[in-house]
Design a binder for these strands. Structure first.
Length: 482
DNA sequence: AAAAAAC
């Protein structure tokens, strides 16, 4: 099976060949003919399956074919609109469109917030057939009348479930209202909740269903492992692990922006090249950091879930969950950054006692029992092994409520104990680990952020995650929380 | 629970 057999015009086949691809992936085999035929599509493809090319190629095909067969007055009007939930994702789709459109006379641009609007306005004035955008800035342009969506023939909603999570639905509806009713629409989503189905009902006509991998499934090329560890020792364990894989890159996920910045700083100060990416960084910083990581100039990228979905990094060998995500779906998305395109990948999670509950949710969703390996010198607190599979969740939850102490008590004991004991607790063994990491330094002092970074923040970097108060949600399982 | 996204 070749791209030629899928019916793509020669200009696109040539661009595909230039990019080094010879065989379409399963989703491309399915999606390309359906989109070329003009059908609406509801696509459920796992990431790393070639989904982006799966819709950009037939989209370019249709636009190019149409332009060549008519003297359209709508030349250089916006004819295709692709919406993505994050700026980086929009940029990535834009790169794909640019790659494949090099031999067709179609213009594309990327529209997102956080950067100067004037440059985008200038660009739009040139006449742009394909606009890739995040919803907020697009509506901004609509309001300023610097974009006209009345001639849009094709709409793509990428990562629709993510858009839903992020509260984009009102924006999406507004945008849908600005588009011609006679158009082709494609909707891609990793999961199919009722809300997604509702949205699909509203925006798709007789959609063809494309579902390559069973939803929520994770790539079989990924090796999962959990390292049980006390929350206070996570940073040190991370440094330890990274030192034992000196030549590999890793994407490290954390739950909050504060931990994100501090962890990157911690790694830097321990000789591991690292930077942070999260929503409070300037767009320029975000772009530069991601580029540096993709180019291999940066060894470790510490990220919030801004980078959890869709971001494509060539042959990334490691995704490390420094903190376990609180929903199982997020785990699937995060680790989906590795093991892409048939490559091998490793999903490593550092899990403390408080996070065991989420681990159970994850294992249930991915239908896999993740092996647990304790790294010598980084043993978890004894609580980790208590109370079987539920990790003492209910017990702790009710205790917190009962003492009315804003769940201070159990948590205060947590950082305090290791801090006081760290220096003296390990006299029996060398305080210098085999990898050269100096464990003799007290925990707090070895991670203390410089004054500038600490100023204005109150949260502790390694505070154990707050316990979720979702007793009902647990019982409901995946039935329908949220 | 926090994250993301428009000014």
């Amino acid at each position: 099976m070749s791209f030629a057999e899928l019916g793509l015009i020669p200009e696109l086949q040539k661009a595909v060949a230039d990019a080094g691809y010879t065989e379409p992936t399963p989703i491309q085999r399915q999606a390309i003919p359906i989109v070329i035929a003009g059908h609406d599509v509801m696509g459920g493809a796992q990431t790393g399956t070639g989904k982006t090319a799966g819709f950009t190629l037939p989209l370019l095909h249709r636009l190019a074919r149409h332009a060549s067969t008519s003297t359209s007055p709508a030349r250089h009007q916006t004819r295709a609109l692709i919406l993505a939930p994050t700026r980086e994702l929009a940029m990535q789709v834009y790169e794909s469109v640019k790659t494949y459109s090099k031999y067709v006379p179609l213009r594309a641009t990327c529209i997102y917030g956080g950067v100067d609007m004037n440059a985008q306005i200038q660009e739009l004035r040139r006449g742009i057939e394909i606009v890739i955008a995040t919803p907020g800035r697009l509506l901004d342009h609509v309001q300023q009348k610097t974009i006209n969506l009345s001639q849009v023939e094709m709409l793509v909603l990428d990562e629709a479930d993510r858009m839903l999570d992020m509260g984009f639905i009102p924006d999406i509806r507004r945008i849908l209202g600005l588009l011609p009713a006679a158009r082709q629409s494609l909707l891609f989503s990793a999961t199919f909740s009722d809300e997604i189905k509702k949205l699909a009902d509203q925006m798709l006509k007789n959609p063809q269903l494309i579902e390559v991998a069973r939803r929520n499934m994770v790539s079989e090329t990924i090796t999962h492992v959990v390292h049980p560890v006390s929350s206070g020792m996570k940073r040190n364990l991370l440094a330890h692990l990274l030192r034992h894989q000196p030549d590999t890159q890793a994407l490290v996920f954390v739950d909050t922006k504060i931990v994100c910045g501090r962890l990157a700083h911690f790694l830097e100060r321990h000789g591991i090249s690292a930077d942070a990416i999260h929503g409070d960084k300037s767009q320029q910083q975000r772009t530069e950091t991601l580029e540096a990581f993709k180019a291999g100039k940066l060894r470790v990228l510490v990220a919030t879930d801004v980078a959890a979905r869709g971001i494509d990094i060539d042959e990334l060998p490691y995704v490390i969950n420094f903190e376990l995500p609180h929903t199982a779906e997020d785990y699937v998305h995060r680790i989906g950054r590795t093991g892409r395109a048939g490559h091998k990948g490793n999903a490593v999670s550092l899990v403390c006692a408080e996070e065991k509950h989420w681990l159970n949710d994850i294992q249930k969703l991915i239908k896999l029992e993740i092996p647990q390996e304790i790294v010598p010198g980084f043993e978890p607190e004894p609580e980790f092994f208590e109370a079987g599979s539920r990790g003492g969740r209910g017990r702790r939850g009710s205790a917190d409520k009962a003492d009315g102490g804003r769940e201070r008590a159990p948590r205060a004991a947590q950082p305090a104990a290791p801090r006081a004991e760290r220096g003296g607790k390990r006299p029996g063994r060398s305080t210098i680990a085999p990898d050269g990491f100096d464990f003799s330094k007290p925990y707090e002092s070895s991670i203390a952020a410089p004054a500038a970074e600490t100023a204005g923040t109150t949260a502790k970097p390694d505070e154990p995650p707050r316990r979720g108060q979702r007793p009902v949600a647990f019982l409901l399982g995946g039935l329908g929380r949220k």
